[in-house]
Design a protein around this nucleic acid. Structure first.
Ligand code: FES
Ligand code: FES
Lengths: 167, 167
DNA sequence: ACATTCCCAAGCAAAATAGTCAAGAATATC
DNA sequence: GATATTCTTGACTATTTTGCTTGGGAATGT
């Protein structure tokens, strides 16, 4: 499989979008700040999400993104597929030709595994995630961390992504 | 997750070992040839498999590898873990600290997914795989392809891994 | 002795990943 | 209509990971 930050960020951002639904269009800058994701990177991801109609966009001041359909209708698997190409774990990508143009010994195993993962992720909607208590708790923390987010923890990170004071 | 050729090769090689059980120790050169895997690369993988006691080795002429326990007792998940570190799909590797030392919005989702994958792969033993008809078919093909393996297909690959004539 | 096999560590080219940077187009507000 | 805001796009890049190779060695059977 291929589950990288690209896919994780996409789901996280989509969930953030769901959680702030009803507040009008949400800017990528907001999401970037709340979720700690690079703005430019998010732009790339949302470009793909928009192509699959998972989000809708409004340009100009007051603009931003909103969900392309309701949170009940968007499934985690869709989001990952939209940005990450495939969730397939086979080496041949389903073509069963990875050893001298023929099927290798373990093709079916990976194929079955892929189906397993795929069906699992496609049962979980953004709404399902929002309904989880742990998710709401994290979302609350993020919403109330407007300013002094860094106070009280050992600041051992050296990246400049914490430009929160300026917001 | 991290499912790369490393993990796939390891499972493939272990399955090859199972299938040729009873023929005495199997050399890595044999496995490399049958499964189309680089010998040196296999050595690295088997070094790790041996550390986890999944295989046992005999040195010298006539030596080779055999299974460390019976095929019913070795599960796919074990093999992958042995060579691939972790099957975990969380970004934080279980530490739930991937956003400013705190849990991110989607930690539980990836954590649940990891458990799902893990339990699936740990239900499947090498014996289970051997019992599959498709696996036996591929194994038969591989066993009878001693020499002229390349005849009859469009030779569009440019790697030199097909040194079968010399064996 | 010597060929065979496992064992081990280091090094490395190519690919993938996780971004940055720069320019531009639409739109709301003044 | 100037300006600020926000999305939109494409190219470029540093870093990491992957999938090996190379080169030595150590056991062990004949
Ligand atoms: S994974 Fe499909 S043929 Fe090997
Ligand atoms: S994946 Fe564990 S905290 Fe984000």
């Amino acid at each position: 499989m291929k589950l990288t930050t690209k896919g994780r960020y996409a789901v996280t951002a989509m969930l953030d979008l769901s959680l702030h639904y009803g507040e009008g269009p949400i800017t990528l800058a907001d999401i970037a700040q709340r979720q700690g994701i690079s703005l430019s990177y998010l732009e790339q991801l949302f470009s793909r999400l928009r192509k699959k109609s998972l989000v809708a966009s409004v340009r100009g001041p007051g603009g931003g993104y909103s969900l392309g359909k309701s949170a009940e209708e968007i499934f985690v698997g869709e989001v990952i597929s939209a940005v990450d190409e495939n969730i397939d774990t086979t080496r041949c990508n389903g073509a069963h030709n990875c050893q001298n143009n023929e099927r290798c010994l373990t093709h079916d195993l990976w194929s079955d595994l892929s189906n397993q993962i795929y069906s699992y992720l496609n049962k979980i909607s953004l709404q399902d995630l929002m309904d989880r208590k742990a998710v709401r708790e994290v979302a609350d923390r993020q919403d109330h961390a407007d300013h002094d987010e860094l106070s009280g923890l050992d600041i051992s990170m050296a990246d400049g992504s914490n430009d929160l004071a300026g917001a």
